[in-house]
């Protein structure tokens, strides 16, 4: 199977994890990446700017109704949920918090699964709650590929452990190996 998009969810310790993942993705990476990191509702777009400065791909905060481009990482804005539309645009919403979080990982994972079906890779990283597990299960049910960060490596192991328990993911990997997997020849559909 060749994949077209990657969706990553992270919470406590996530910024560090993302800092070790996104900068390793080469320019021209042929898939779109969606990132949901739990973050305080009052923050500005600091995280997107910070990660963009360190990455070769374009990292930006997602805009409402923006058209999805490959080689770009879209970050869910603070205090908004990020939804992926089946016409490959993005939507934002202010629905209730889910798992005490807005943005919620589950919402983005679920809607990305509707849009990309079996051509989606879902990744759950470090975190101290259980957001993302249900969404990852949806991705698996839609035929997508599921990866969870090795809990022993995660700054906080609760989120990866819960995802592993609920989903039985295809792979449980350390951050470095997880990037290697994404960069394996033929894993992502070439542009």
């Amino acid at each position: 199977m060749q994949y077209k998009a990657v969706v990553i969810g992270s919470s406590a310790g996530g910024l560090n994890a993302l800092k070790s993942v996104l900068p390793l993705i080469p320019a021209g990476f042929p898939a779109a990446i969606f990132v949901v990191q739990h973050i305080s509702p009052d923050s500005d777009n600091y995280m997107a700017r910070f990660l963009n400065q360190r990455s070769k791909i374009h990292v930006k905060e997602a805009d409402d109704k923006e058209k999805i481009e490959v080689g770009t990482a879209y970050i869910a804005p603070p205090n908004y949920h990020l939804l992926v539309e089946e016409d490959f645009t993005l939507s934002l919403s202010v629905d209730e918090k889910i798992n005490y979080s807005r943005p919620s990982i589950d919402i983005t994972f679920e809607t990305a699964a509707y849009a990309y079906g079996s051509q989606l890779v879902g990744i759950v990283l470090t975190g101290a709650n259980t957001d993302g597990a249900f969404g990852l299960l949806t991705i698996k049910n839609y035929g997508g590929y599921t990866i969870v960060q090795q809990p022993s490596e995660a700054e906080s192991s609760i989120m990866p452990s819960e995802a592993i328990r609920l989903v039985k993911p295809h792979k449980i990997l350390k951050l470095n190996d997880l990037v290697m997997k994404l960069l394996e020849p033929g894993f992502i559909l070439p542009k």
Partner: peptide
């Protein structure tokens, strides 16, 4: 409406 929202 946003179809992703409605569908969910």
């Amino acid at each position: 409406y946003s179809r992703a929202h409605v569908k969910r």
